[in-house]
Design a binder for these strands. Structure first.
Lengths: 214, 214
DNA sequence: ACGAGTACTAAGCGTGCGCTCAGCAAGCGA
DNA sequence: TCGCTTGCTGAGCGCACGCTTAGTACTCGT
C-alpha cells in the first residue's frame, strides 16, 4: 500500500489492472495530458507520443479519444465512491466516520491530483450516454455524504440545519483540492486530509478532535 | 442595482461599460459559449453567430480568441477583488466583515455563475503573460481572506490554527458555487450566500448568527 | 516450417479550425 | 458632391485535428 506517498508515486494505482500493457500506458498518458491541458486541448498525437507509440496505436485499444476519458472517469469515480462507502460502513461513531470519509477522500484527491483533476473537471467533454452514467455515480457520492450528515444529526453529534446544501458544500471543498494541489507545495496529502476533516467537523457543528487540528 | 436578482437577469452587468455595442455583444456571446462548452471547444464561428455577426467581425474588435477570454477574466477578477476588499473595509466586527465577504462573494458567483465559471475555470487557456497577470489578482484575493482570518484571531473572535490552509479552503468552497449552481435549482443566490457565510463562520470557530442559518 | 492472429507503424484522408483579406454600404466633414 | 473613415461580410487560406487504411514485424499453435 504505497498509495499515500508524498508524491504521485503510483499514479497508475487505479489502472494497475488494465491490460494489455500498451492500453494502460495510453491511459496514463491520457491522464497526464488531460490534466495538464484539458481534454479538448489535448491531441491524440500528444497522448500517443507520451506513451511512446504512433498516433494510430491509440485506436487499436480505444475506439475514440472520448472513450479514453470515459475509462479514466469511470475508474476514478468507482474509486471515490468506494472510498466513501468504506468510511461510511466502518463501525465507529458518526463523527469518526465523517472524519475518516473526508480524510480519505481529500487524501486521494491530493495524492492522485492528476487523475482527480481529470475525473472531476473534464466531465463536460463526455458523450451524452457516458455523461449520464457518470452523473449517476456522482449522485451516489452525494447520497452517501447526505446519509452521514443525517445520521450525525439523528445521533445528536451534528447540528446541520440544511443537509443537502451542506453536503454539496463539503463535496465542493474536498473535490477542489484536486484543482489547486501541487506536489511541491508545503503540505502532504495526509496533512490536508487532517485539516479538511477538522474543518468539516466544525461545519457540521461536531466536536473536532483538536489533537489532530494542531 | 438589479444585480442580485434570482436569475442572471443582467449577465452583462460587469461588461456594461464596454463599447462599441458590437464588442460588448461579442463579449457576452463568448461568456455564454465558454461557460457552456469551455474555451477550447468553442469556435470563433460559434461566438460570432451568437452575437449575430459573421466570423470575421470578431477580429475587428479583438485580436484573437484568447483576448476575449482575457477581457472576461480580467473584468471578472476585478469585480471579485472589489467585492472582497469592500467587505474587508466595512466598519463592523471581524465576524460581520467575514460574514459579508463570504455572502457577497458567493452571491456573485451564484448570480453570475455563467461569467464566474469562465473566470474561475478557464484560466489555463490564457496565454503566458495574461495568465501571470490574472494569477497576481488571484493572489490578492487570497491575501484579503488571510488578512480577515488573522484579524479575527487577533480580535479573539476566531480560532484558526492554520490560516493559509483555511483561507484556501474557504475560497475553494465559495468559487465552486459557480461550477454547480443552476438557475432552476431550489436555492436563490442570497440563500446560498447566507448558508455559506454561516458554514464559514463555523469553520473559523466564530459565532454564527443562527438567525440567518435556517 | 508455416499460416493465422496480434500489435503496431507510415502515410494520409477529409474536415473544421483560427484567422485574413478584398470589398462594400453607411455616415460625415468640407 | 466627393473622398475618407468605420464596421462589417463573403470567400477562403493554410494548418492541424480525429481517425482510417494498407502493410509489416513478431508470436505462437500445430
Amino acid at each position: 500500500m504505497t498509495e499515500t506517498g508524498p508524491d504521485e508515486a503510483v499514479p497508475g494505482e487505479s489502472f494497475g489492472g488494465v491490460t494489455p500493457d500498451a492500453a494502460r500506458r495510453l491511459l496514463l498518458a491520457a491522464v497526464e495530458a488531460f490534466a495538464e491541458r484539458g481534454f479538448h486541448a489535448t491531441t491524440t498525437r500528444d497522448i500517443a507520443s507520451r506513451a511512446g507509440m504512433s498516433p494510430a496505436a491509440l485506436y487499436i485499444h480505444y475506439r475514440t479519444k472520448e472513450e479514453l476519458l470515459y475509462h479514466i472517469s469511470r475508474v476514478g469515480h468507482e474509486r471515490t465512491v468506494c472510498l466513501l462507502t468504506a468510511a461510511e460502513q466502518s463501525g465507529h461513531s458518526v463523527t469518526e466516520r465523517l472524519d475518516g470519509a473526508v480524510r480519505d477522500f481529500v487524501r486521494w484527491h491530493a495524492a492522485h491530483h492528476t487523475t482527480a483533476r481529470v475525473v472531476q473537471y473534464e466531465l463536460a467533454a463526455l458523450g451524452a450516454e457516458h455523461y449520464a452514467e457518470i452523473v449517476t455515480m456522482r449522485r451516489r457520492t452525494e447520497e452517501v455524504l447526505r446519509g452521514l450528515l443525517a445520521d450525525g444529526v439523528s445521533a445528536g453529534e451534528f447540528t446541520v440545519p440544511d443537509i443537502p446544501g451542506t453536503a454539496v458544500a463539503v463535496l465542493s471543498l474536498c473535490i477542489d483540492v484536486a484543482r489547486w494541489f501541487r506536489t511541491d507545495g508545503p503540505r502532504t496529502p495526509e496533512e490536508i486530509g487532517a485539516l479538511y476533516a477538522a474543518l468539516v467537523l466544525r461545519m457540521v457543528g461536531g466536536e473536532p478532535r483538536e489533537a489532530d487540528y494542531q
